[in-house]
Amino acid sequence: MDNSLDKFGKFLVENLRDSGINHFELLLKAQWKAPALQSIQNELGELSDSQTETVKKAFIASIDSAIHDFLFALQEQADFKNEIRIMVDNNNIAELSDGIHGESYSDDGWNAKYSKYEMIE
C-alpha cells in the first residue's frame, strides 16, 4: 500500500510542484512567447540577482504551502466527512497515511525523493 502513496506523491511533485517551479524559472529566463506573460517577464528581468533569488524562494515557499494546505484538507475530509477521495490502485491515499500533509517533507519525503528542486529552508 505504501506504493500507492508514493505513486501519488511522485505524481503530485512532478505535475504540480516541479511543473510550477519550472514555469516560474522559464518566466525568469523570459522563455515564454505568450503575450500575456511578456510584461511579467520584463518586470522580473529588471530585478537584481538578490531580488530574483528572494522572489524565487517566496514562490517555492508559496507553492509548497498550497500543496500542504491541499493535502491537509484532503486528510480532514478522510478523517471526518470522507466525501472527497483520491484513489490510487483502489486505495484511498489519505487513509494510507497518518497525516498526508506531512508526506512531502523530511529527508525521505516526496520532495526529497521526486523533486528536481530543493526545499526552501
Rank of each mutant, 00 (worst) to 15 (best):
M1F: 01
N3F: 07
S4G: 11
L5P: 10
L5A: 08
D6C: 02
K7H: 05
F8P: 10
K10N: 09
K10C: 08
F11V: 02
L12K: 04
L12Q: 05
V13R: 05
E14F: 04
L16N: 08
L16F: 07
R17Q: 01
D18F: 04
S19D: 06
S19V: 04
G20I: 03
I21N: 04
N22F: 00
N22E: 08
H23L: 06
H23T: 10
F24G: 01
E25A: 04
E25N: 15
L26F: 03
L26T: 07
A30I: 03
K33N: 15
K33L: 13
K33F: 05
A36K: 15
Q38H: 12
Q38M: 14
Q38D: 10
S39P: 10
I40S: 11
I40W: 06
N42C: 06
E46T: 15
Q51R: 15
Q51S: 15
T52F: 01
T52Q: 14
E53P: 02
T54R: 13
T54E: 13
T54A: 09
V55A: 11
V55T: 09
K56E: 12
K57H: 10
A58Y: 06
F59Q: 09
I60T: 11
S62A: 14
I63K: 01
S65M: 08
H68R: 12
D69Y: 04
F70W: 14
F70V: 13
L71A: 07
F72Q: 11
F72E: 11
F72P: 03
A73S: 14
A73H: 12
A73M: 12
L74D: 06
L74Q: 11
Q75H: 08
Q75C: 04
Q75F: 01
E76Y: 09
E76T: 12
E76W: 07
E76S: 09
Q77I: 05
Q77S: 12
A78Y: 13
A78P: 08
D79P: 01
F80Q: 14
I84M: 06
I84T: 10
R85L: 07
V88M: 00
D89W: 01
N90F: 06
N90Y: 09
N92G: 04
N92L: 05
I93Y: 11
I93L: 10
I93G: 10
A94D: 09
A94K: 11
L96Q: 12
S97W: 07
D98W: 00
D98R: 08
G99I: 00
I100R: 06
I100E: 02
I100F: 02
G102N: 13
G102A: 02
E103F: 03
S104D: 05
Y105H: 10
S106C: 03
S106K: 11
D107Q: 14
D107V: 11
D108G: 05
D108F: 11
D108E: 12
G109N: 05
W110G: 07
W110M: 05
A112V: 04
K113R: 15
S115E: 03
K116C: 01
K116S: 11
K116F: 01
Y117N: 07
Y117Q: 04
Y117M: 03
M119Y: 07
I120A: 07
E121S: 11
